[in-house]
Amino acid sequence: MAEPLLQARELVAGYDQPVVGPVSFIVAPGEVVGLRGANGSGKSTLLRAIAGTARVFDGRLARRPGLTVAWLAQQPVRLHEMPFSGRDYLRYAGARDTPPQRLAGWLDRRMDAMSGGQFQLLAAWSVLGCGADVVMLDEPTNNLDPEGEAMLAEILGNQRGRRAVLLVSHEGAFLEAACSRVLEVGP
């Protein structure tokens, strides 16, 4: 088996107080791993701990040396005035892979003129297309209609074997469709 990219052992993480754990898991290259749990169970906190913005109280969280991480927050930054075209947005995110065909038609539109679903799909691609070793997506189906969800699931399916993806979602059917395995997360 390839060397794990991420390894959590009895990890307890949170902010002022612990929010999630103890939890143990391994993420290997090429896996699309879903994180499922009730509201407040600490799924997003787990991603933040990996990203270094939440505190590790106990246990161990190991990252492969030199690991690169791309992270789509639950609410991506969307400014009131955003003089960036879709193409600018992807460029500054470092997304150099060719975007899927459906996104291509939006690339010359300003980000603040896009619908919520269009913005969300471009935001998801901005992290998926940047070549990071691990991509973390927190509730990426927010604002997406069924067609958008299906498209995102297809994009994620194409990522299998290319890079590791950690995916947080409330939607069980979406997780089952997009992930190679699903972890239950609880406080």
Binding site: A51, W71, A73, V77, Y89
Partner: peptide
Amino acid sequence: MPRLIRARLFPGHEAANG
């Protein structure tokens, strides 16, 4: 400029990658 833009639009990126 590209670093400041990335920091503004993708605020977790810098911390996540040290």
